[in-house]
Amino acid sequence: MPDAGMHRSARPTLAVKGLSKRFVIGEQTVEALRDVNLTISKGEFVCLIGASGCGKSTLLRIIAGFETASAGTVEMYGAPITAPGPERGMVFQDFALFPWLTVKENIGFGPRQRGLPKDKLDEIATRYTEMVGLTKFADYYPSQLSGGMKQRVAIARVLANDCEVLLMDEPFGALDALTREKLQQELLEIWERTKVTVIFVTHSVEEAVVLSDRVVVMTAGPGRIEHDARIKLARPREVSAIDFNQVRRDITRRLSSHVVVKSVPLTA
């Protein structure tokens, strides 16, 4: 079966080199990331997975340019990242839509910043509204939408701004199981169609295996990369398939070997 990543160019889009991040909270210094190295190719779908506190969100936020590294660099096409930019679009867990703008205006927000002419702007906003299936809701405000719809708007908003790397911070974590599955499928369709590079943070092994070309397992205290697994399962993936379960078990084992579990004896 062909690997979805194979036909994509192997040119590294993003290179994370020797990245460390320390936070100073009061008197204490917390080491969120230590010496993280990661190379991501154009068009790859990469999931970062790990227990809370492993620094996966921090890594994503440094790539986005929202946080600065304590040491090391993140480069995009060889140029170091120092600030947020349209080529890296973040999709937040809690959507972060502009509540005073309609669906279409939210989606057109990025293109509007570039000062495009009105008709061009409208054309882009309409196209991306349609892409995420919200044409009927184009004039709704975020407060009138369901969680799944809001996240569709958030995805369309960064894609409409020609983002090349989609950064997703547990984007479906606040959604119910059915909506989550539906959005996972929609995201895969969008990814196939647009060839966008995706870095997706999650703590669900199943979600990671369903979606990604690569699963990067991170461990906490301090956060670092424990394992980097290429998922070679054919798409579309079936969560109940035997080979799917095998991969899932393997990743889960890698993940849980570093999670301290308090064992409680079942019988006295």
Binding site: A83, P86, R88, G89, F92, F98, Q113, V158
Partner: peptide, 21 residues
């Protein structure tokens, strides 16, 4: 909400237009 500033800056909205928009 601080996230709105982050969302705006990644979409290319900065400076005085950040204030207005």
């Amino acid at each position: 909400d601080h996230k709105l500033f982050e969302a705006a800056s990644m979409l290319g909205c900065n400076g005085s237009s950040l204030f207005r928009q």
